[in-house]
Amino acid sequence: MSKDIEVALVTGGNRGIGYELVKQLALKGLKVILASRDPEMGHKAVQRFKELDLDVSCVVMDVTNQESIRHAAVAINEKYGKLDLLINNAGVYLDKNEKLLAMDPCILEKTMATNFFGIYHVIRSFIPLMEKQGYGRIINLSSEYGAFNEMSYPGVGAYKLSKFALNGLTRLVAAEIRGDIKINAVDPGWVCSDMGGPSAPRTPEQAAEYILWFATIGPEGPNGGFFRDGKRIEW
């Protein structure tokens, strides 16, 4: 792990891929902040990490609540004064395989609120902690469903649109940021988790390996890219 990275924040870090990312980062010696919408679930996850003697703390943050994000950003700034790594892992998959125009509009609205606007507000609130030190790494967990050619096929429309928009956000932010701050979108693949289901072929440990590579990239590393298994894929 790069010596430059000391403080990391993982949203949705109390379970699934997020939990594994927190664990792997803490094992590498980072101070890891686990963001959880549910205080009790966040606290239980931190207790499990403390039993392993890992440096993990919890911040309560609901990515669909701007005030909650702002409070978390203030708390982390007051405690650490910076943020080196932000992993936007929190997300929802609410679709049943319905056509976009036939589904209840609230499914699309809730999906976009978490998977797109939530990440937008998190980045907007935490990137100042990176800008003031001129360094940071941001990893957005996307999906192959967000690729442009997936828009030619019906089904899972709310989730697809949310990840398509997230990919666009990744590129736009990459074009705007200055200094040694990099942002990339990563498709973790089909992972055995609450979201992916028990029949998924990939473990959270396998997914974490490819995601965390982007935490260690140097100044010459990619910025504004879309990757799966460490390889660049088409938008």
Results as ranks from 00 to 15, higher is better:
1 M>P: 03
2 S>W: 06
4 D>L: 09
7 V>G: 09
10 V>F: 09
11 T>H: 04
11 T>G: 08
11 T>F: 01
14 N>H: 15
20 E>P: 08
21 L>H: 07
21 L>P: 05
26 A>Q: 01
26 A>R: 06
27 L>W: 07
27 L>C: 12
27 L>F: 12
28 K>T: 02
46 V>F: 00
48 R>E: 07
50 K>C: 06
51 E>H: 04
53 D>Y: 04
55 D>P: 13
57 S>G: 11
58 C>K: 05
58 C>P: 00
60 V>G: 03
65 N>Y: 11
70 R>Y: 10
75 A>D: 11
76 I>Y: 03
79 K>W: 04
83 L>V: 05
84 D>N: 15
85 L>Q: 00
88 N>M: 05
89 N>L: 02
90 A>F: 04
90 A>R: 11
90 A>W: 04
91 G>C: 07
96 K>I: 11
97 N>V: 12
97 N>E: 14
99 K>P: 06
100 L>C: 07
101 L>N: 07
102 A>P: 03
102 A>W: 15
103 M>A: 14
105 P>C: 14
109 E>T: 11
110 K>R: 15
110 K>G: 13
111 T>S: 08
113 A>N: 07
114 T>F: 09
116 F>E: 08
119 I>F: 00
120 Y>K: 04
121 H>P: 02
122 V>W: 03
126 F>L: 04
131 E>N: 02
133 Q>A: 04
134 G>S: 05
136 G>F: 00
141 L>W: 00
147 A>R: 15
151 M>A: 12
152 S>R: 13
152 S>E: 12
153 Y>G: 14
156 V>R: 12
157 G>E: 01
162 S>F: 05
164 F>G: 10
170 T>P: 11
171 R>N: 12
172 L>T: 15
174 A>K: 08
175 A>Q: 08
176 E>W: 01
182 K>Q: 14
184 N>R: 15
185 A>Y: 06
186 V>M: 12
188 P>Q: 03
189 G>M: 01
191 V>E: 00
191 V>A: 05
193 S>H: 03
195 M>W: 07
198 P>M: 05
200 A>G: 09
203 T>P: 08
203 T>I: 13
204 P>W: 00
206 Q>V: 08
209 E>H: 14
210 Y>D: 14
212 L>H: 01
213 W>I: 13
222 P>D: 14
223 N>C: 13
223 N>P: 09
224 G>T: 07
226 F>C: 12
230 G>D: 11
230 G>N: 10
232 R>Q: 13
232 R>H: 13
